[in-house]
Design a binder for these strands. Structure first.
Lengths: 137, 137
DNA sequence: CCTTGCCTTAGATCCTGTCCAAGGTAGGGT
DNA sequence: ACCCTACCTTGGACAGGATCTAAGGCAAGG
């Protein structure tokens, strides 16, 4: 993700300490953090960073297609830095944690035109739900 | 859904005017209403019904498997009375409206065991996103 | 028809996320 | 190297969705 910042700057993104830290946090563990978790981690390196800035930055990264926003059943949204390789998610119904998965098959192909009801379909999201090893223990 | 109330009463559900009205609202148009929409419609027949009761009743219907709860990307959850026939959803990214769809193929079968990461997977949800005919117009 | 325990209610409260006005700063221009 | 100015950041207010609470209401078994 080091080139991410470079790429964005070329597209006219003003590079600030706050944005750098947010990007670095996302680049880190490749987990799926909530906005508040991103804020907490960013604040370890930049204590004055505000929640609003984290939200703003995440929103823009999502907008620019650099980060994926995944909603998790009414809990806080999670942010997935793995935006460039198509994949789906495995969600723990108990604790809300997630993992990336790459199922076989193409669900978009599984939607016959007769089932489109006039929608212009552009995206499919597949969510597998279950109990994660930690919660099962 | 007329037998729904019967079924629930047999399982020890106390039958009240409020619960009856909520069930009737859901049974109606087979659309996907939000909790507030359910409340609004219920209030047309039972003006004193409170939001809390609608939420309580919906939560229980979901818990008992009689109604499906579908989250829609940070907007209000929607409630789907079509809980007994497996299907998936088509969601308008602009207005949040939904339709049921029945794609071919079984996404659960598309998740190889090597991709389960120790989760006990019990459910798959497929969400097709796009623009509905009304919003495209 | 009475009693009991489950329901309902209004309103407070919580959680996520967005908005706002005021002050700060990156970085192009000179 | 320094200034400007447009863009960013900030904290706190705000909004929407959903849950919780304490007090009173009522279904339905006895």
């Amino acid at each position: 993700m080091s080139d991410l910042l470079e790429r964005l700057r070329e597209r006219g993104w003003r590079l600030t300490a706050q944005r750098r830290v947010v990007a670095e946090v996302l680049d880190g563990d490749h987990v799926h953090l909530t906005a508040d978790e991103v804020h907490a981690r960013a604040a370890r390196r930049l204590p004055e960073i505000s929640r609003a800035t984290v939200y703003n930055t995440l929103r823009e990264l999502v907008h620019r297609g650099e980060v994926l926003e995944v909603s998790t059943d009414g809990r806080a949204k999670r942010y997935d830095p793995n935006a460039h390789r198509p994949h789906h998610h495995l969600l723990c119904s108990r604790c809300g944690s997630m993992r990336d998965v790459r199922p076989t098959g193409d669900p978009l192909a599984d939607l016959p035109p007769s089932q489109s009801f006039g929608f212009t379909v552009s995206e499919v999201e597949v969510t597998y739900r279950g109990i994660c090893p930690d919660c099962a223990a």
